[in-house]
Computed example of a mutant assay.
Amino acid sequence: MKRILIAAAVLSLAVIPASVSAWGSTGHRMIGMAAVRGLPDDLPAFLRSPAAAAEIGELAREPDRTKGAGQPHDRERDTAHFVDMIDDGRIMNAQGPSIDALPTLKSEYDAALIAAGESVNDAGYLPYAIMDGWQQLSRDFAYWRVLNAMEARETDPGKRAWYSEDRIRREALILRDAGYLAHYIGDGSQPHHTTIHYNGWDRDTPNPEGFTTSRQTHGAFEGAFTARVARLDAVESAMTAPKLDGFELRPRVATYLKTTLAEVTPFYRLEKAGGFRDADPRGATFATARLAAAASELRDMIATAWRASADVSIGWPAVKVAEVQAGTADPWLAMYGED
Rank of each mutant, 00 (worst) to 15 (best):
R29T: 15
D88H: 04
D110M: 12
A149M: 05
T79A: 13
D177W: 04
D74R: 01
Y128R: 02
T104P: 00
D84V: 06
D132N: 12
V229I: 09
V229W: 04
S49L: 02
W201E: 04
D278M: 10
M150Y: 04
P97T: 01
S189A: 15
P40G: 08
A289Y: 00
V83N: 05
S138R: 11
E263S: 08
I114P: 03
D156N: 14
G57A: 02
R203K: 14
L47I: 02
M33Q: 15
R215H: 12
E338I: 13
A172N: 10
L59Y: 01
S25T: 13
V10G: 11
A279I: 14
R29G: 09
W332P: 06
Y336I: 12
W134D: 09
E118Q: 15
D177C: 01
G70M: 06
W23L: 08
W134Q: 12
M92D: 07
G315A: 03
T217E: 11
A172E: 14
A34Y: 01
G188I: 06
K2P: 07
L102T: 02
L333C: 13
T205W: 08
D204A: 15
Y109T: 06
Q216S: 15
H197E: 00
A161I: 09
A334T: 07
P17N: 05
W306N: 05
P44C: 07
A111C: 05
G179D: 05
G327N: 10
H193A: 15
T212I: 05
G210I: 02
R61E: 11
D156H: 06
S296I: 05
Y184T: 03
H81N: 07
A51P: 05
A303Y: 08
D202Q: 10
T194E: 08
P44R: 08
A289L: 10
A152H: 07
R307M: 08
A112S: 13
L249Q: 11
G337E: 01
I174Q: 04
T66M: 13
M301W: 11
S21M: 14
H183R: 08
A94C: 02
L175Y: 03
A115K: 11
P127D: 04
I174A: 03
G68H: 01
Y125K: 13
D156L: 00
A101M: 10
R29I: 12
D330C: 11
A172W: 02
S98T: 07
R269H: 06
P331L: 00
V146Y: 09
A295C: 06
L244K: 13
V321C: 02
T304S: 10
D74Y: 00
G133Y: 07
L102S: 01
R299W: 02
A34R: 00
P40F: 05
P331R: 00
R299G: 03
E171A: 09
Q71H: 06
L5W: 08
A334S: 15
A220F: 14
V321S: 00
H73L: 01
V83A: 11
H183T: 07
R250Q: 13
Y109Q: 03
P127R: 05
